[in-house]
Design a binder for these strands. Structure first.
Lengths: 335, 335
DNA sequence: CTGAAAGCGCTTACAG
DNA sequence: CTGAAAGCGCTTACAG
C-alpha cells in the first residue's frame, strides 16, 4: 500500500528545495550533475510520477481530448474510436468518451460540460437528431470557448471546423457505375436508413449514376415489414438485375427474400452491401462490400485536432478531408 | 471568443474576496443572502464554471475512471462501454478509455500510467495475452497505489478485486441440457475460440451437460479451413442433431456448410449461436441465440467501482457478481 | 548552482 | 457576515 510520493517529500528526504528537485527531474542545466544524479536516483527508487492534475493546472492544459460518439454499438464508430485511441496514445493524450445515443439533448449536455475545461479539444460525430433539427448552437458554444473541434464522419452541414468524413455519395455512384459498366440495366437500392443524412447521400449517389435512366428502383423503409414488401417487389415484379444494399438490415433482408423466393445470388441477381468486411465474408454466398476505413478516420481526426490544439493551424481556414472507400468483390457479384 | 472567467475575476468585478465568491456559489450559510444573490447573478451572467482541474487538485480526486477494453471492435465490449458511460454520467464521472488490443505489454503501459493518478479507479477486462501468460503483476501495481480495481467479463482467475462477469460455463451447460431434454442425443459444438478463456468455459459447460455420454462432438480450430473441415465432419459423418456455435465465425460457417450440403435448419439440425441478437434475427433462418446483457455488466461494474472509491466497502472482501444470460428461441430450434 | 517566491484556480479552517 | 491565509502539487522567473 504505497502512497504516491510528492516533490515535497522527495525534497525533504534529499535535504534540498522543491525547486531543485523539480529542475533536476527536468534535466535543467541549472542543476549540478551530482545533485541531478542524487535526485533522479531517489525518484526512481520511490517510483516518483508527477501528479498529472497539478501539472495540468500549471500548464492550463488537460492533456485530454473528448470524443463524442453517437452510437457505440455501431461497429463503424467502435472502429473509429480504435483509431482515435491509437493516435491519442502516441500523442500522449487521454481520451474521454461520451456517447450521445443519437440524442441532441444529451449532446448539448456533453458539450456544455466540456466548456468548463475538461478537455483540450473535441472530436464529434453529431447525433442524427442534431443533424435532423439542424441545431448547432452547442457546437458554436465550444468554439466560443476556444476549444478546438473536429467533426468526423457526419460532416455534411455547414460548420466552421475541420472535418473528416467518407464520401458516401461518390462511393454509391461508383458502385452503381460499375454495375452498369458490366451491362446491367435494372439496378435497385434497398435501404432502411433513407431518412438519415448518410442514407440520403447514398441514394443521391445512386441517382447520379443513373441520371440518364427513366426508372429508379428504390426499396426504402425503416419498418422491416414495409421494407420487406418493397424489396420483394424489386425482386419479383421489377426483376432488378442487381441490388445495392445501403445498410446491414437491408442486406440481410435481401438475402433472406432472395433465398425464400428461389432467386440465386449471384446467378440471378448481383448484390453489393454496405456492411463490414468481417460479416460480408461469412455470409452465404459471401457478399461484395464497400470497405471503409474507420480507423483511418479516427487517426486523421486526432491529427487534425492536435494540429489545432498546438496552434499550428491558427487562423487557417477549416480543412476538409475525405477518406476513400474500396469496393471488394466477393461471390455475390461474380459475372 | 469568450475566455473562461475565474473566481478571481468574478471577485474583482464584485469588489469582494475570492473566498466570499467561492462560498456564495456553494450556498455556504456564512454568506448573507444579499451577497449570495449578487454573486450568483454575475456568475450566471458570465456563465461561470469552476475549473475542474483546480477542483480536482484541491480534492485529490480526478473525477475520472479508467476503462481498459481488450478489443472495441467486439460488439460485446462496445455495449459494455455503453453501460459504463451511462452509469458514469449519472455518477458525474468522466470515462477515460484505453484499448489494450489484447496485448499484455500495452496493458502494462496503461496500468503503469494510471498509477500516476489520472483516475480514481479502474475497470478492466484483461487481455487474452494476460490471461494466457497469467501475468497479473501490473494489476497488483494498481492495488499497491490504492487505486480501486473492478474486473469485468474476464474474471476467471484469482485476483483480489471485485468482479462482474457472465457465467459462460453455466450458460452452455443449460443450452446443452435444453437440447437433450427435447430428446436429442448427438449434440455438437463448433468453436473458433477454444483456446481463449471464455472458449474453454463454454466447452466445459457443454461437457458438464453431457457427462454421462460417451461421445463429444467438437469442431474446434482458429483456422477457418480446419474448422470448416471439422464442422463438415460433424454434419456429414457424425450426423449430429444439433450444434452449439460458440462464436460468430463458427456460427456463420455452420450456416454456410449446412446450406452447401443440403442440410436444412431446423428440419435436419437445430442450431444455437452465441451471437448478438441483432444479427441472429436477420439470418436465414433466424438463429436461436444466447442473449447476454453487456450494458448491465458495464453498469454494475461502475456501481461496484463507485462503492469502492467512496470507501463504502473499505476492508470488505472482494465481491463476485454474475450477470445472467437468456436463451432466445428463433427459427433454428423449432421442433 | 540552489532556493524562496509567486502563481495555476480553487476550497476551507480560522480570525476579525 | 467577510476576508486573509494556507494549501492541493507542481513549474519557473528571479535573487543570491
Amino acid at each position: 500500500m504505497k502512497n504516491k510520493i510528492t516533490l515535497k517529500e522527495l525534497a525533504k528526504l534529499l535535504n534540498v528545495s522543491v525547486s531543485t528537485v523539480s529542475k533536476a527531474l527536468h534535466d535543467s542545466s541549472e542543476i549540478s550533475p551530482k545533485t541531478a544524479e542524487r535526485v533522479k536516483e531517489l525518484a526512481k527508487l520511490h517510483n516518483y510520477r508527477p501528479n498529472p492534475i497539478a501539472v495540468n493546472l500549471k500548464s492550463s492544459k488537460s492533456g485530454t481530448i473528448g470524443v463524442i460518439i453517437p452510437n457505440i454499438a455501431n461497429s463503424f464508430f467502435a472502429s473509429v474510436l480504435w483509431g482515435i485511441e491509437a493516435k491519442a496514445q502516441k500523442a500522449g493524450l487521454q481520451v474521454i468518451t461520451y456517447i450521445s445515443d443519437e440524442s441532441l439533448e444529451r449532446e448539448q449536455q456533453i458539450t456544455d460540460m466540456l466548456t468548463s475545461g475538461f478537455v483540450d479539444g473535441v472530436l464529434i460525430a453529431v447525433s442524427e437528431e442534431t443533424n435532423h433539427k439542424k441545431q448547432y448552437d452547442h457546437l458554436f458554444g465550444l468554439i466560443d470557448y476556444n476549444i478546438p473541434v473536429v467533426l468526423y464522419d457526419r460532416v455534411s452541414f455547414d460548420f466552421p471546423a475541420d472535418k473528416i468524413g467518407i464520401d458516401d455519395e461518390q462511393t454509391f455512384e461508383d458502385a452503381t457505375n460499375l454495375l452498369q459498366a458490366k451491362g446491367l440495366k435494372k439496378i435497385g437500392v434497398a435501404i432502411s436508413i433513407h431518412h438519415l443524412g448518410v442514407g440520403k447521400l447514398r441514394i443521391k449517389g445512386y441517382r447520379n449514376a443513373l441520371a440518364s435512366m427513366d426508372d429508379f428502383y428504390i426499396a426504402n423503409s425503416s419498418k422491416p415489414e414495409t421494407l420487406k414488401t418493397k424489396i420483394k417487389k424489386l425482386l419479383l415484379e421489377d426483376k432488378v438485375e442487381a441490388i445495392l444494399c445501403a445498410d446491414f438490415e437491408s442486406t440481410m433482408l435481401v438475402y433472406r427474400l432472395a433465398y425464400e423466393n428461389g432467386i440465386r445470388i449471384p446467378e440471378d441477381i448481383k448484390v453489393i452491401g454496405f456492411i463490414q468486411g468481417g460479416v460480408a465474408k461469412l455470409l452465404t454466398p459471401s457478399i461484395s462490400y464497400v470497405e471503409q476505413f474507420p480507423e483511418q478516420i479516427g487517426e486523421e481526426a486526432v491529427d487534425l485536432l492536435v494540429d489545432r490544439i498546438e496552434k499550428k493551424l491558427t487562423d487557417e481556414k477549416p480543412i476538409n478531408k475525405t477518406v476513400f472507400t474500396k469496393l471488394m468483390h466477393l461471390e455475390s457479384t461474380v459475372f
